[in-house]
């Protein structure tokens, strides 16, 4: 028999929807890094997920070195301090690494065909993964459990914990800040200009290389934030986790319309919700197949993604 249909217990639709939205905002955060880089240099950055993984490892290393390993064994001050330190260090390190990678590896290839750059990115992804496996080994490693699991909602049937609050509390302001930055600051405008037409932007006196570096820095730091939030939320890091999360994030970016910032957020949320609902009603083993089937169906009807502009091919 095909045991396609999993049983459902007492937890209901609202609960799965909530979990999906929380997971989705995490995917969205990673997807933003993909989509911004793509928007500017049309590169599918296959190494982005692995950058996220290295960020998670760094955060783990920090907490471990500081000795803040469990909630019960550490004072509240130490926990808040450690989390704050992680939220500063990991994004900075990821941003630096991302910018350095761009400077050394992608920048000399600016005029090269797209495939060349994609293959370089795959190469970078291999290197990062090997670094990860040499760093923390190949088994999953427990990430310090520093945010309580206590339920914050009294309504029956739904659990909304401190952890969920943390994810939402970090991701939503980050995404709002990013949108405002791109919309209203001069640098943001320069980014949009470069994305639209690099040559024209250059002619207008925009330092394109600097804009690209800033884009990689922002994308990297978002991956770093996502890595910390992911570590605290899922409580586990693994050298291959970049692949799975990167895949979902890439999918989210494309689903929303690659290069489109609100699109990436929407795409992330859709994937999170579809993923969790399919786990609940069809069983976890089918979840990924369902996510990608829905993705393909959506793209058949909206070939440029949910929010992607219907651009005509340039002649």
């Amino acid at each position: 028999m095909l045991d396609v249909f999993a049983q459902t217990g007492a937890a209901g639709f609202e609960q799965f929807l909530l979990l999906g939205l929380v997971m989705g905002s995490l995917y969205a955060l990673i997807a933003l890094g993909y989509t911004m880089v793509y928007g500017i240099i049309e590169l599918i950055n296959f190494a982005h997920g692995d950058l996220f993984m290295l960020g998670g490892f760094l955060a783990w290393q920090l907490a471990w070195t500081l000795g803040v390993r469990t909630l019960d064994a550490s004072s509240t001050g130490a926990v808040v301090g450690a989390v704050a330190l992680m939220l500063v260090t990991a994004p900075l390190a990821c941003a630096a690494l991302n910018v350095a990678t761009d400077r050394v590896i992608y920048r000399p290839l600016r005029s090269a065909p797209k495939l060349t750059v994609i293959v370089s990115a795959i190469g970078v992804s291999f290197v990062f993964m090997n670094v990860g496996s040499l760093w923390l080994g190949t088994s999953p490693v427990k990430f310090p459990d520093l945010v309580p699991d206590a339920n914050l909602v009294t309504a029956a049937g739904v659990r909304f914990t401190w952890k969920d609050l943390m994810v939402v509390g970090v991701t939503v302001p980050t995404m709002v800040a990013l949108t405002l930055f791109v919309k209203f600051t001069p640098l943001g405008k320069a980014m949009r200009a470069t994305a639209q037409n690099p040559t024209a932007a250059k002619l207008m006196g925009i330092n394109v290389d600097r804009v690209i570096a800033v884009t990689f820095a922002i994308g990297g730091s978002l991956a770093g934030v996502a890595a910390v939030v992911n570590g605290l939320y899922n409580k586990s890091v693994h050298y291959q986790m970049g692949f799975q999360n990167g895949l979902y994030a890439f999918t989210a970016a494309v689903l929303g319309g690659i290069g489109n910032i609100p699109g990436a957020v929407l795409g992330g949320l859709v994937i999170g919700v579809v993923g969790e609902l399919s786990k609940a009603y069809l069983g976890t083993k089918w979840s990924e197949a369902v996510v990608f089937t829905i993705l393909i169906v959506i793209l058949v009807f909206r070939p440029s993604g949910l929010l992607g502009a219907r651009t005509r091919e340039k002649v």
Binding site: Y38, E42, I44, K114, L247, F250, T251, V254, I258, K285, W286, E288, A289, F292, T293, L295, I296, L299, V300, P303, S304, G305, E313
Partner: peptide, 23 residues
């Protein structure tokens, strides 16, 4: 059905198709 997609969208669809077959 997906041929009208442009380059990178098509790349993702083929990637997704590969994963679906594997599952």
């Amino acid at each position: 059905p997906v041929l009208r997609l442009r380059g990178d969208y098509l790349a993702l669809v083929t990637l997704g198709f590969g994963l679906i077959v594997q599952y």
